[in-house]
């Protein structure tokens, strides 16, 4: 547990220094001790909330990944790859663009949740119906569902957009990115992370049992079907929260649980919180790079994570294939 927790302040410090004008490590002291200086005020007002928002989104991504990998019993499972995030994005697009009787702040998360839940359930159903619980089959089912959802999202954007709604907002979902939140917004986001942790942690033992195979899990007392439904529901909640706040950010959900297991072993009671901490750290760093790479422009967060995460995925795939 120590290492992931140590990573958090380190990643935070680095991320605060990174930006349109990147600071040196020496400036950290000034930022901490002289909050009235112009630079400090700028950093505290703009950069710190942004970095913290990235941390929260990253924690949600890490949690989502840990839940997905646990439920699917598959080290390559990830909400972004298996359609869960895609479903949430379709829901979010509908919430943003379609004329709905609900106010947007309510419709958006609700539809994102419904989308994530539906898509995840669909992948699980397809994989099971085809008897494809093994690694490649499950991934194929997930990729197919994700592709269909991506097309559905593009179609919705084209069909529903007009001059009154900006496509910009929806496009930012597609590419993934964290906005600078107000402090109350950040408080809400932090609360969401705590809720997600509280929802995921009680599932730890069930996920451990599920990892022994369904027969073994059932013979040790786990009501397998009911538990999977519940875990998918919790996973959909976490994924929807991450998509509403950060859009489609891939691969953090893949990497964080892997790094957690690599350092701490496969017990979910440790993997779940560690994946949240590692995901937060990764997202802070990636978001920092996104802000600092091409000043004054920002590159999308999803682009940075895919650049690192894609090769990581291939590495894991190669290792799985050899097993």
């Amino acid at each position: 547990m120590k290492l992931p927790l140590l990573l958090l302040p380190l990643a935070f410090a680095v991320a605060v220094l990174l930006g349109a004008d990147t600071l040196g490590p020496g400036d950290l002291l000034a930022l901490a001790t002289d909050p009235a200086a112009p630079l400090s005020r700028l950093v505290w007002a703009w950069r710190v909330p942004r970095v913290l928002a990235a941390a929260c989104v990253g924690a949600l991504l890490g949690l989502g990944g840990a839940l997905f990998q646990g439920v699917f019993r598959n080290p390559l499972a990830e909400p972004y790859l298996l359609g869960g995030a895609g479903g949430a994005a379709v829901g979010a697009t509908l919430g943003l663009l379609a004329p709905l009787p609900l106010p947007a702040p309510l419709a958006l998360p609700l539809l994102a949740f419904a989308g994530a839940w539906g898509a995840t359930g669909l992948v699980l159903l397809l994989a099971r119906a085809a008897g494809l619980v093994a690694v490649p089959g499950l991934l194929l089912a997930g990729v197919a569902v994700a592709a269909v959802l991506g097309a559905a999202r593009s179609f919705l954007m084209l069909a529903l957009s007009d001059e009154t709604v900006s496509l910009q907002a929806v496009l930012s979902w597609t590419l993934g990115g964290v906005q600078t939140p107000s402090w109350p917004e950040l408080g809400g986001l932090a609360l969401l992370v705590l809720l997600a942790l509280a929802a995921a942690l009680p599932l730890a033992r069930g996920l451990d049992l599920l990892g022994l195979g369904e027969d073994m899990a059932a013979s040790l007392g786990l009501p397998v079907a009911r538990f999977v439904r519940l875990a998918v529901l919790a996973g959909a909640f976490v994924v929807a929260a991450s998509v509403v706040w950060g859009g489609l950010v891939g691969f953090i959900g893949l990497m964080a649980p892997h790094l957690a297991r690599w350092r701490l072993g496969p017990a979910h009671a440790r993997v779940i919180p560690a994946a949240a901490a590692i995901g937060a750290s990764l997202a802070m760093l990636a978001d920092g790079v996104a802000r600092a790479a091409l000043p004054p422009a920002e590159i999308p967060l999803g682009l940075v994570t895919a650049l690192v995460g894609g090769p990581f995925f291939l590495l894991v795939l190669a290792r799985e294939a050899r097993r």
Binding site: L203, R205, L209, L220, G221, L222, R226
Partner: peptide, 14 residues
């Protein structure tokens, strides 16, 4: 996991 099996609650918690 084998030894603790009676402790699994219906929702799979501990």
């Amino acid at each position: 996991l084998g030894a603790g099996r009676g402790a699994v609650l219906p929702w799979g918690g501990t």
